[in-house]
Nucleic acid binder design. Sequence first.
RNA 1: GUGGCUGUAGCUCAAUUGGCAGAGCACUGGACUGUGGAUCCAGUCGUUGCGGGUUCAAGCCCCGUCAGCCACCCCA
Length: 427
Amino acid sequence: MKTIISPVKGTRDFYPEAMALRQWLYGELARVSRSFGYQEYEGPCLESLALYEAKSGEELVKEQAFCFADRGGDQIALRPELTPSLARMVAARQGQLPLPIRWWSFGPFWRYERPQKGRTREFFQWNVDLVGVESPEADAELAAVAATFLRNVGLMPSQVYLQVNNRRLVETELARLGVASEQRGMVFRLIDRRDKMRASEWDAYAAEQGLSASSIRGIALLLEDKELWKKSEELQSFFGAVKALGVEEYVEYDPTIVRGLDYYTGTVFEARDRDGEFRAVLGGGRYDNLVGDVGGDRLPGFGFAMGDVVIQLVLAKFGRLPTPRTASAQVLVTTFAASELNTSLDLARRLREVGILVEWYPKPDRLPKQLKYADQAGIRFAVICGPDEMARSSVSLKDLATREQIEMKVEDLAVEVRRRVLDPLMA
RNA sequence: GUGGCUGUAGCUCAAUUGGCAGAGCACUGGACUGUGGAUCCAGUCGUUGCGGGUUCAAGCCCCGUCAGCCACCCCA
């Protein structure tokens, strides 16, 4: 066996079928984003490593960033997330950009992690951010964008839903339990692990972290209190807005959701499948200070991101992955003889001139083989021009789906094909 | 970074205690010389991921290495 250079670990090849699926996903994201008035933007895939040192967590930069020195010796990173680029772009035009900013994006990101189910080193991510508004209703809009997407792609609330919490609420409750403020980060991580451990293990682990038995008991109670949100005016307003936005069946309070990232300050959410089979489908939250760390004035915002990998796993599980048509063309122009190659090229040109997608069969194989190729390529129509047709200055058009074949003058071909291709019953 | 499982034809997988590397699908050709998805027949396809070791003999056992998958960590 020949040795094929293997692809870079954690990357995926997008063969045409996979590419069609990615394009379908892109179309769905674009549709829902635009319907809420968000504008598409894009940042560079290369950024200086310093940008992430300013904005992102230690772990993300030191452990997960793909970075290298360029020829001039500057430290460059392949972007592991978009938010710092957004912050930079907003800061550079602060004062010029009318607020609020509603921007969305879908592009590639890289993280140097061990690939496994639902996680690759190169992935595509949908980012949606609302900057310059600080209100529970703004938070709810982002939840609605996410939920509407889930609904649009056919995922039911019984299958996938948003879990919501508020960090300010959690902090208040922790303070009431006597947890010191410098322990909060550790406790957030602890909360994050609650459902990954057995209760006894979790208790022991919590004690190891230096929490008192009464604090641990208090935290455990917090995590089971599904009514806790009523203590938060923010969350009360949030859920009211969610209802007005018509997505309440997708959105639930969940006291165990805190999110790992340090910069979240208020409401946070993530979407998961109800069975808990997969990792989070999407996640996001409110940040108080988007651009401060990159040199701008304080600007609050809310953003979430969704990777393309987990959502595809979830869609596949629930039978909601479409099978997009991957036909290379609408018409195949067959080639009868080596001496008639230009006849085929001329027919193909005539069809392209009226907007038909045309593929040309490049050599005079036996006709069955050419028709079989059209079949496999998903091409519905075949144009055939052999000696019989040529003697009459005509061509034959065969519909592979109905097996119907008609002969017509060469001049009439383009119009006839166009009529059939445009016919909705033919689609 | 830590641990587990798996690498055999283009694809999916067989191969008994170590004993001649096989099948289905796909592909190519033919039956059928200008009419496709069916059927039948025939044919091509391998340094068993790579390197070393044990053995008369290794796809199988041992060591290393690479790759893939899964879990931990973290996160989309």
